[in-house]
């Protein structure tokens, strides 16, 4: 199965790493350039979805099993809410990032935004990949001629 589409498979192998790298750039450079957790999460998910489309679903699920993706969904929300609770316990308001660096409030803001955006990215990645898994797992394999 799928022994043809040589160009697609080679290009995919080249691209997946680049896409993941770009997702990380969008994620952690979101303070300075357009982008942030939402976009980065989607781009990160696209890398895995592309891999799943070109090589079959089983291959990508060997890299990233569904139960891991389901945990990621919840983990992201927990990171976001946990950041808030952490600032809570440091004696500040909920989600007041000044708590992480009382001497330099703007540094604290940097850390807080970084953590929160990371949570956003993790959740979006998890949700997108698991929606793709849910759809793709129900689809019988399609003949290439059918398209």
């Amino acid at each position: 199965m799928m022994h043809h589409h040589l160009i697609l498979r080679v290009v995919t192998k080249l691209l997946v790493g680049t896409i993941i790298l770009f997702a990380l750039y969008v994620q952690f450079h979101g303070d300075f350039s357009p982008g942030g957790g939402f976009q980065a999460g989607v781009i990160m998910a696209v890398a895995f979805i592309l891999y799943g489309i070109v090589f079959r679903l089983e291959k990508v699920q060997r890299v990233l099993p569904p139960w891991v993706v389901h945990k990621l969904m919840a983990l992201g929300v927990l990171i976001y809410a946990g950041t808030g609770i952490l600032s809570f316990f440091l004696g500040y308001n909920y989600l007041d990032y000044g708590a992480f660096s009382p001497d330099h409030p703007s540094h604290g803001q940097h850390w807080g935004i970084l953590a929160v955006e990371f949570g956003v990215g993790v959740t979006v990645t998890g949700v997108m990949i698991s929606i793709y898994y849910a759809f793709a797992a129900r689809t019988p394999l399609i003949d290439d001629e059918a398209w």
Binding site: G30, D31, F32, S33, P34, S106, Q109, H110, I113, E117
Partner: peptide, 8 residues
């Protein structure tokens, strides 16, 4: 906040 991207 000292973050150049004001949207973020």
């Amino acid at each position: 906040i000292d973050v150049p991207n004001i949207v973020t």
